[in-house]
Computed example of a mutant assay.
Amino acid sequence: MSDTMGQLNWQEGGAARSASWRSESGWPAPKKVVVADDTMNADTAYRLALEGTALLWRGDFQNARQLLSALVRRIEHKSDRARRAKAGKAPATPSEQFHRHRLQQLQRARTLAMLLIPFEAGHVIPLRRAPDVREACLEAYGPAETPYVSSLRELLGVIGAHEWRRKGVRIPALDANIHPWYGVFSPVRGEYVELVAQAPLPKAAKLAFDIGAGTGVLSAVLARRGVERVLATDMDARALGCARENIARLGLAAQVEVIQADLFPEGRAPLVVCNPPWLPGKPSSAIEYAIYDPDSRMLKGFLGGLAQHLEPGGEGWLILSDLAEHLGLRTREQLLGWIRDAGLDVVARHDVRPTHGKASDPDDPLHAARSREVTSLWRLRAIEDCTSRRSAL
């Protein structure tokens, strides 16, 4: 259990108890813990969770799920009251709205993470009406040789990820499913996949690099489009395993090689593709590394190293949403400046509007920005290989 975060200590039955602590979000073990069961009401549980007191559940598992739902309702009710109280005040800037939303998300997650579930060795839950989660936890965590404690909310995420992995996500461009692993971002936003499926390939693009491959979906699309060899890179162990499994499922292992590398593999290619995290910011959990890019590290790293890894006349494809621009987290001028400073020029840009539910949900806290979001595939070349067309953009 290499990702445990120390020990959880508590008092139970007049004796000191302890178990290994697991948190994918990287949160330390709670210092205050009380034993809870079916006799605890939701209001008491909510008050304790807000105070930072964890509830180690000893009652019926399904009742724990109901209690978690009750906590969610109380958090949402509190958020609704806060929104109504701010309704008459001066509107916040998009950046202020985003940071406020992130803080609320973090506080919500921290509160809900206070409801804890015990596990015996082998990922067995010793509670009444507990489901068999051994396969799901084994996929997410690997073997568990000793007892441990984790949050119910995290466990439900593991169970949900197991279902995603089992059923897969349909990718029209492949006419097949991609099976995401726990902790690897699922390609549910199909518009960026379609951009890669439809953009014109550079001439003689027999080799391509897929930087930050994740599930391997873009590598698979490139291979299906006729690219003879694709080198897919990632640093995350789960992503590497996930990509290899998906590539093998699709029968593309002879074309696609998945390797561990920080951004670029060695050498040059006529096509280098990257779909970095779209928002600058600090991730609060493993899965958020696919969404938040601290200090735009991956975006800047890709742009900064692209020219050195392109063959003469080759193209780099940057797939990026402009949501960060609408949220005031990055400007178009900054992005174009990073492109220019990296010795690159823009050959063309292909745009598409997202079709996911939040883009048209007026109740979403970031609706004003999401409603204007555009996802783009930027086709980039080294400046010495093309005539500048930046003014057309």
Rank of each mutant, 00 (worst) to 15 (best):
G337E: 08
P172L: 07
A368W: 12
F98S: 02
I171S: 08
T93L: 12
G168Y: 04
V188K: 12
R100I: 04
R189K: 13
Q255N: 11
M298N: 03
A243I: 04
F98Q: 03
L306S: 10
N63Q: 14
R100C: 10
E191G: 01
S391W: 14
A204D: 15
P91M: 05
K167P: 03
V227G: 05
A269K: 07
A109R: 14
D351E: 13
T44L: 10
W338A: 05
A197C: 06
L299N: 00
E51W: 04
P270Y: 02
S360N: 13
K203M: 13
A87C: 10
R372E: 12
R153S: 15
V221C: 00
V374E: 12
S23I: 01
G314Q: 01
K31H: 14
H356L: 10
P265D: 04
G88F: 03
S186K: 04
A45G: 07
S285V: 04
A204E: 15
E384Q: 15
A29Y: 09
H162S: 15
R83Y: 04
A85F: 11
H123G: 05
V169W: 03
K167T: 15
R332L: 12
T375Q: 13
A176K: 07
P200S: 08
A42N: 09
V193E: 01
L56C: 09
L174Q: 00
P277T: 02
V221R: 02
L195F: 11
R297N: 07
D345L: 13
W181F: 14
W338L: 01
G26N: 02
T39F: 03
S23G: 09
V34H: 10
L231P: 04
P312Q: 05
W10H: 01
R229M: 09
V34R: 03
D236M: 04
E228I: 01
A248M: 07
F302H: 08
I75T: 13
G59S: 09
P202K: 10
H101V: 11
I339D: 07
A359C: 08
D364H: 15
R47P: 07
C242D: 08
L377A: 05
W164Q: 14
G14H: 07
A82I: 11
E333Q: 14
W378S: 11
R238W: 09
R17V: 06
F209D: 00
A144R: 07
V158D: 06
A269S: 14
G142R: 08
